[in-house]
């Protein structure tokens, strides 16, 4: 059973940059993404007794964040609110002086936002966060085959949108 310690806090803080990155792959809105990180930290700390010492704290945090995100999207859907306003001006890397990169980052964000949640989460964990298939299927608590299928569908959809001249693109912009 996990317990509070300075070391555990430090480990959590060490993971915050990655948690922020994962949150941002889920939510286009930077403020929403950081709210998601905060919620994850709060839930993790109040449920520390559910964390098995010796298992990976980061995987556990990813799982909490994934669940929090799904709860949040459902809640907002019930309220009829959109998650990522399409006109949102902020973009990942918006401070980057390289205009091409900025445009590309915006395309990526837009493409990610079109994916169904389960595909986006799989892409976020494996492609963005660099988890192995085994780690990612653990986080999601799904069989490996389910993960690879979601991942493949997500990656193909992203490819089709990001390379619009692709012969395999299902739809063009």
């Amino acid at each position: 059973m996990g317990k509070r310690s300075a070391r555990l806090e430090n480990e959590m803080i060490e993971y915050l940059p990655r948690m922020r990155r994962f949150a941002r792959s889920l939510s286009r809105d930077a403020a929403d993404a950081d709210d998601l990180v905060q919620l994850t930290v709060e839930r993790a700390l109040t449920r520390l007794d559910q964390w098995q010492d010796g298992t990976r704290l980061d995987s556990w945090m990813y799982r909490i964040m994934k669940n929090a995100w799904i709860d949040e999207t459902r809640r907002r859907q019930r309220q009829g609110r959109h998650l990522a306003p399409p006109e949102a001006g902020e973009s990942v890397g918006a401070e980057d002086p390289d205009f091409d990169k900025r445009i590309r980052a915006m395309s990526v964000e837009r493409a990610m936002a079109t994916l169904p949640d389960d595909q986006r989460i799989a892409v976020g964990l494996v492609l963005v966060e660099g988890l192995s298939y085994k780690e990612a299927s653990n986080v999601l608590d799904v069989p490996m085959g389910t993960l690879t299928s979601r991942l493949a569908r997500g990656r193909k959809a992203l490819e089709a949108q990001l390379n619009p001249d692709s012969v395999e693109a299902g739809h063009d912009d």
Binding site: S25, V92, R104, A105, E109, L127, V128, L158
Partner: peptide
């Protein structure tokens, strides 16, 4: 995709 999120 990786390059988009890495700066975060």
């Amino acid at each position: 995709v990786r390059e988009t999120y890495q700066p975060i």
